[in-house]
């Protein structure tokens, strides 16, 4: 079961991180960052198959491709933005973290707005 390995890695890294942060906070950032990345890459294969299943499911349902692709992109942006913001917060840089989150939100909006706008257009045109 992979969950044990992941929790083990996480715990070891947490202990090391506390140890190092007292002496060298700079290296402490790296430990947090690297652990996060390693755990994500570890689990990436499973994530990939989940996404493929979602794709197949969406194809069966006859929703248009663009909806699933938009949702997936928004989830991706949210994930990466949250990752970056958390690392910055752990390093104590709240300012940078909040700006990263802000940028993530704007990008998500850019992705979501076309759907909203075209839906509104359609509704306005439907009612004569």
């Amino acid at each position: 079961m992979e969950i044990f390995q992941i929790v083990a890695i996480g715990l070891v890294a947490a202990v090391l991180s506390v140890l190092i942060k007292n002496q060298k906070p700079e290296i402490g950032i790296y430990i947090g960052l690297v652990t996060g990345v390693i755990i994500f890459i570890f689990i990436a294969a499973k994530l990939q198959s989940v996404i493929e299943i979602l794709n197949q499911l969406a194809n069966k349902i006859n929703i248009d491709d663009i909806y699933l692709s938009t949702i997936l992109k928004i989830v991706g942006i949210a994930y990466v933005a949250e990752f970056g913001a958390q690392v910055c917060k752990d390093a104590g840089e709240g300012v940078i973290a909040s700006k990263i989150e802000f940028a993530g939100k704007i990008l998500i909006m850019v992705m979501a707005v076309p759907i909203l706008v075209s839906l509104m257009d359609l509704i306005i045109n439907i009612v004569p």
Binding site: V75, I77, K105
Partner: peptide, 15 residues
């Protein structure tokens, strides 16, 4: 699948 962040609301909107 979505991470529990502030951005979760946006995903809910689009969904």
């Amino acid at each position: 699948l979505v991470p529990n962040s502030n951005n979760k609301r946006y995903v809910n909107v689009v969904v």
